[in-house]
């Protein structure tokens, strides 16, 4: 049995909306609406879905940057939200994150070497005399030369900046690295460099990744196991190969077929979705994908399907597939 690093249990996150009337019923935006999954140790775990499906909110809940409205997150078996500040800080060190825009995550007035060193100073790790060497080793680990130590963020290219952000996250030796769209802002020819770096780090450090992306090609390439999210819920969960070879949920099928193929004139098999996702404030009754689903039945409009395990860990939330 593999060891669970993260257990998300029935997570809900609602944001209260401003109302313009004093006694009007308060309305809520349901960003995450009942999400349950586990991340195993050493796994490259992928989260895919379109904008507004709750992938980033889920990541924030895992990192305890946001508190769930309902549900719990266990990291190494412990509930982060019940910890005292001192314990929290110690355990939080084991989870690090990187975001889409590296320039926004770096301090423009500090040379990047100092920025990589900062976490060591804050958490008081290592001997102050050794810290510079630790930073230089880290730079080497992300394939950057020592001369980059004294550079400033504006002097670097997008790919180099993302490497710096990665180095800063890795220097405290975390166990979990949450990456929220880490390569979306990079150019195509640079993406491959950074993706290869992620794969190498994953292998070398036995690090657990939670990799959030809307780019299915990349996710398929790097991830071991994937969840597909739609409007705040997980609609399908499976091993990467299984998900792409045997896609069960109609939404996942449409999502995968919408990825432009690299062979000219291959649009024949595309499943075209109509319209846009419904508003997460006033969700319709029943399955939330029903309004765009070509296989929708009367039952789908009545009640919401649960995530059901079809065996071999492939879970799907669709009446048509599960029959339940």
């Amino acid at each position: 049995m593999r060891e669970k690093l993260v257990e998300a249990k029935g997570l809900y996150k609602q944001y209260a909306l401003k109302s313009d009337k004093l006694f009007a019923k308060r309305r809520y935006l349901k960003a995450v609406d009942g999400v349950t999954f586990d991340i195993y140790k050493g796994e490259f775990f992928g989260v895919v879905g379109e904008s507004g499906c709750g992938k980033s909110t889920t990541a924030k809940l895992i990192l305890d940057m946001e508190h769930p409205t309902k549900g719990t997150v266990l990291f190494k078996g412990r509930d982060m939200s019940t910890l005292k500040p001192k314990e929290w800080r110690a355990i939080r060190l084991d989870m690090q994150m990187i975001f889409q825009d590296p320039l926004g995550a770096l301090d423009p007035y500090m040379c990047v070497g100092k920025q990589i060193m900062e976490p060591l100073e804050i958490h008081n790790i290592g001997d102050p005399k050794d810290r510079k060497q630790m930073v230089l080793d880290m730079l080497a680990a992300v394939s950057l030369k020592p001369i980059f130590y004294d550079r400033y963020p504006h002097e670097l290219s997008g790919g180099q900046r993302q490497r710096i952000v990665l180095a800063r996250a890795l220097i405290v030796k975390p166990q979990l690295l949450v990456c929220d769209e880490p390569i979306s802002a990079l150019d195509v020819s640079i993406q491959a460099q950074v993706v290869n770096l992620f794969k190498r780090i994953h292998k070398e450090l036995n690090l657990t990744f939670m990799f959030i992306s809307h780019d299915l090609r990349i996710v398929k390439h790097v991830c071991d196991r994937i969840i597909v999210m739609y409007l705040g819920r997980v609609v399908e969960e499976a091993e990467s190969d299984e998900l792409f070879a045997n896609t069960l949920h109609p939404y996942s099928q449409a999502l995968i077929s919408a990825v432009p193929s690299l062979t000219p004139d291959a649009q024949a098999k595309r499943i075209m979705l109509h319209g846009d996702p419904p508003n997460p404030i006033d969700l319709p009754k029943g399955c939330r994908f029903a309004s765009r689903c070509s296989k929708c039945t009367p039952r789908c409009l009545e009640s919401e399907p649960e995530l059901v395990d079809m065996g071999n860990g492939h879970k799907v939330a669709c009446f048509l597939v599960t029959g339940k």
Partner: peptide
Amino acid sequence: SLPKMDGQEGDLIPIEGS
């Protein structure tokens, strides 16, 4: 440098530099 959708394993082949 692009991963293919029809099962391809191993590392991507990036263009070095920028």
